[in-house]
Simulated scan of single mutants.
Amino acid sequence: MSMLDQNEIDALLNAVDTGDEAEETDDVQKIFSRTRKDLDTVEIRQYDFKRPERVSKDQMLALETLHEAFARNFGASLSGFLRTIVEVRVAACEQMTYGEFVAGLPNPTSYNLIQPDKLEGQMCLEVSPLIIYPIIDRLLGGTNQDLFIPQRPMTAIEQRLISNVLRRGLDALSEAWESVRELKFEIVAHESNPQLVQIVPPNEVVMVIGLEVRMASRAGTMNLCIPYNVIEPVMDELSSQSWFAVSRSENDNTSHDRITKNIDQTGIEVSAVLAETTITLKDLSDMKVGDMLVTSKGHKDPALILVGQESKFLAQVGQHRGNRAVRITQSVARGDRVQGHTQD
């Protein structure tokens, strides 16, 4: 390495004072690339090397859609359990480091470690005290009016009560994940201070699904934290296209069978129209018992069978075992003209 002499140092100082060096720098802005690109047309995007995005936008969209189904099912389950309307919705779905996630949580809170049965590693579910204590108050017969939110860890009894709620949430979560992979979730540990729990290193990327839980005038948040290394084995199945395709292919046959079964058991009105005619309003107002209505239809002409409001068959009128009956003689296609009957 060569040292600068005094003349070279003086030249650099003079260039800084006069601005020559700055002008030269402005004139030679370059983009280092294998191909030449115009600086005015190239797209420059910021990239934070401390927070690498390991999950694509399609996978994040699929993850958000999946947990929207979880939110609906969990809200319906809570509404029935608490006998009041509970709304659960996805408020955010983003990726960050585990250290950033833990730093944004309150202390104390309800911090629950979740173990998926067919995946390695653990997830965590954090529930805000702002909604936990109104739920507990509701379970104990309270009205949530003037409810004080204590700043302390939950007692053993409170933890036992809230476990019943969380168990329903895990059932709804398993149901939502069925479209990707059949998983069962189990709570393996509870903690009130998130800083004491480290399921992954602080700089590890996690997906955080933020949910808002609203019950009457009370509202709070839930945060489901999924480390990337936990669901990495199913990331290929979680892309938006494959996930929707899997969902459709698995549900098509089930939906078809369920709809077919319900339709087969559905009752529908069937009527036989013997004849039709037209009269005036004056004739209708003068009509009395014993009057006779004469139609242009012969007594041997077939009756028209209506299924709902649609003409479907022609039939011969008779009786069977003492009851009025009709025997189908001919089908009627849509648009066919039937003598003696008006068609819609």
Rank of each mutant, 00 (worst) to 15 (best):
E182M: 13
F101V: 03
S217M: 06
E178A: 12
F148L: 08
Y111G: 01
N164Y: 09
V206L: 04
I135N: 04
Q151L: 05
E204P: 03
Q95E: 15
R167W: 08
L105Q: 15
P150E: 05
P106Y: 03
L196E: 08
P201D: 15
E100Q: 12
M207Q: 09
L166K: 07
I149M: 04
Q198H: 05
E120D: 15
T155C: 01
R168C: 03
S179Y: 09
L211F: 14
P108F: 11
R218Q: 06
R181I: 14
L196V: 04
S192E: 07
M96Q: 10
P108A: 03
P108G: 05
P194L: 01
G210L: 00
T109I: 03
F148R: 10
L130M: 11
I187R: 13
E212Q: 13
G104Q: 06
Y111S: 01
P129Y: 09
Q95Y: 02
L125W: 10
N112F: 09
V180D: 14
N144V: 00
P194C: 02
E186M: 11
D137E: 03
C124K: 00
G142H: 10
E178M: 12
P108H: 07
E212L: 07
L196D: 09
G121T: 01
D137L: 00
R89A: 05
V188N: 04
S163K: 09
I187K: 13
L140C: 04
A216M: 11
C93G: 12
F148G: 05
M154F: 04
M154V: 02
V205T: 12
Q151A: 08
L139Y: 10
T84H: 07
T155S: 15
V90S: 11
G99C: 04
P108Q: 04
V208L: 08
Q198S: 12
E100K: 04
A92K: 12
E175Q: 15
I85F: 15
L196S: 11
L105Y: 08
P194G: 02
G99R: 02
L119W: 14
G99H: 06
V127H: 10
K118Q: 10
D117I: 01
A92F: 03
D117K: 07
M207I: 10
W177T: 14
L130W: 10
L139W: 06
D171Y: 03
S163N: 09
D117G: 04
S217F: 01
V165A: 03
L119K: 12
R181S: 12
I131M: 13
I157P: 13
V88N: 14
A91T: 11
T84F: 02
A91L: 12
Q115Y: 05
R167P: 09
P202I: 00
S174V: 06
V200K: 01
S179C: 11
L140V: 03
W177P: 12
N107P: 02
Q159S: 07
N193D: 14
E175G: 13
V165M: 00
S179F: 08
E94V: 00
V90E: 14
L147V: 07
Q198N: 02
A92Y: 05
Y111P: 00
T143P: 01
I187M: 15
V165T: 06
P201A: 13
A156E: 15
F148K: 11
E87Y: 02
R83Y: 10
G142I: 04
A189H: 08
V205H: 00
P150N: 07
E186K: 11
E87M: 05
T84K: 13
V197T: 05
I187Y: 11
G121R: 01
M96N: 05
M123K: 01
L196F: 15
D137Y: 00
I209P: 13
I114W: 05
D117H: 10
